[in-house]
Every structure is written in structure tokens, then in C-alpha cells.
Design a protein around this nucleic acid. Structure first.
Length: 256
DNA sequence: CTGCAGGCCCTTA
DNA sequence: TAAGGGCCTGCA
């Protein structure tokens, strides 16, 4: 068991911020499935408990939670954004697996969050590997999805998008591209538009300036800013602010 | 039983 | 560049 001290870290807030779909709450702990492993993690105020080896902590989870990054840089005069920060200051932008993020956010389009999670779990169970000693399955690799034929995961019209993605070469190049190159490449992929591309840039590649505008963000623009996009949505930390705003705007809604 | 969900693609104008 | 229709499926 590894424990650390960390402010601006709240598991419930992260789990409900909509950036991740494989957090499973079990009593007062979370099981997080990522990078082929299951992490059991718990929290007592500013103390976070990671049930994993030191090696996994150093090589996987420290990076996954971006523990080297301070996520408290809201010095904005914007009232809505400040309110959002005070409401969800424990939100962190995770650094998730690029492939998993690409598939997950292609699936997410025109689905509500329970439906997204449902599809993803069905996909993992059908095409991923069982993780020994746990009830969970790994997120399927491109190779494992290569021969996916029938839609047994509720993908609907997204099925051909996923199949095409599994056949797309050089996705790893995204890691060494510039922001502009990566975005252009992403938009060239069938099934990836402006919003999903920005989600991938933010959650998979950690470009914190990427700011996905979904229906909730559009609601914020319309209702809080009279239809004019505020400056913070185009700032260097726009993606982080977007998460705060999204979580705040959805206040009261549970992601089960 | 309906309406609609963290969009995207394609067609028109 | 902008606007609008269609789309698979399954929550609510």
C-alpha cells in the first residue's frame, strides 16, 4: 500500500467528471481499470491510498493521475469559472491510454454516460482479456478489435468507425506530433470530429489547451455568457477549465 | 411508448 | 461557411 499527500485531488469528483469510464466504486474505494491493470484506490481527505506495487505506482499510476502537475491554477476573475473551481477543485485531468481514449470517445457520441459505460464494458468483455483475480477485463487492443464483425456491444452506426480505427496505421505517431499535426490527423479519421478530437487531445495526449465543446459546454456559453465564447475556453488551460465547468454545470447529476 | 443522449457525415445553398 | 436531416442503440 502506498500513500501520498495531495491537495486538489478528489476521487469522487474525478470519477464523475466524465473524462473516464472505467472507475468502479466499491463501497468507499474505487477500482480503476487501465493499462491492463486494476488499481484499488481510496482517499481520506488529502491522503490517497494506492493498493499497488511501488513499480506500478512509479511507472503507471503516478503518470495516470498527473501527480507531478499542480491542478490549482485558476486565477481567473471569471465568476462562473471561480464558482466551478470552488465546487470541483479536486478534479484532475488524467493521462489515459491514447488508444482507449480514441475508441471510448468515438463510442461516446450521441450516447448518455450510462450507455457509454455499458458499451465499453461489453466491448472489454467480448474482446479484451480477463484480468486474473478480478472480475474485470482489459480494454481490447487494436489487434483484438481487428476482426470484430457483429455489433454485440451496442455500438450501432459507430461500429464501422471502430473497425476502421483498428485498421489505421501509425496512430502512435500522434505522440510525437505537434498539436496542430495531431489535430489534423485526428480529424482525418472517420468518426472523429471536432469535439471527439479535442477529447483525445486533452485526455489522451494531455494538451491542456484542447477544449471540447459538447452540448453542456454550449449550454454554458449560451446561458452564462450570452452566446459568446469566453476567453478561458481558448486559454492554455482551457481543457482543465472545461472539466471544472462541465462538472459544475452538471451539478446534481450522478454518473453511476 | 416516446424523447433524446458529452456528434458526425453528407448534402445543399 | 452555415444549416439541416439521418443515424444505431438503449437509458430515462
Amino acid at each position: 500500500m502506498i500513500s501520498i499527500q495531495c491537495k486538489n485531488f478528489n476521487l469522487d469528483q474525478i470519477a464523475n467528471s466524465g473524462q473516464c469510464f472505467r472507475f468502479f466504486k466499491v463501497e468507499d474505494k474505487y477500482n480503476i481499470v487501465a493499462f491492463g491493470k486494476v488499481l484499488e484506490v481510496a482517499q481520506d481527505n488529502d491522503t490517497i491510498y494506492f493498493n499497488c506495487s511501488q513499480e506500478d505506482f512509479d511507472t503507471i499510476w503516478s503518470m495516470y493521475f498527473n501527480l507531478h502537475i499542480q491542478m490549482d491554477e485558476v486565477d481567473h476573475k471569471d465568476k462562473f469559472l471561480l464558482d466551478a473551481y470552488h465546487y470541483g477543485s479536486g478534479i484532475r485531468i488524467l493521462h489515459q491510454d491514447l488508444w482507449e481514449i480514441m475508441v471510448s470517445f468515438i463510442i461516446s457520441q450521441r450516447k448518455n454516460i450510462p450507455a457509454i459505460k455499458n458499451s465499453i464494458e461489453r466491448l472489454c468483455k467480448a474482446y479484451g482479456d480477463s484480468i486474473a483475480g478480478t472480475p474485470y477485463y482489459t480494454f481490447p487492443t487494436a489487434a483484438q478489435l481487428f476482426n470484430m464483425d457483429k455489433d454485440d456491444c451496442g455500438l450501432g452506426y459507430r461500429l464501422p468507425y471502430i473497425k476502421t480505427l483498428a485498421r489505421t496505421k501509425n496512430l502512435g505517431d500522434l505522440n510525437i506530433m505537434s498539436y496542430n499535426e495531431a489535430k489534423k490527423f485526428l480529424l482525418s479519421i472517420r468518426g472523429i470530429g471536432e469535439k471527439v478530437a479535442n477529447c483525445i487531445l486533452l485526455f489522451g495526449l494531455n494538451y491542456f489547451n484542447a477544449c471540447p465543446i459538447d452540448v453542456w459546454m454550449q449550454k454554458i456559453i449560451d446561458e452564462e455568457y450570452n452566446g459568446i465564447k469566453p476567453d478561458w475556453m481558448t486559454s492554455a488551460y482551457a481543457g482543465y477549465y472545461q472539466q471544472l465547468a462541465f462538472y459544475y454545470k452538471r451539478k446534481g447529476r450522478k454518473i453511476t
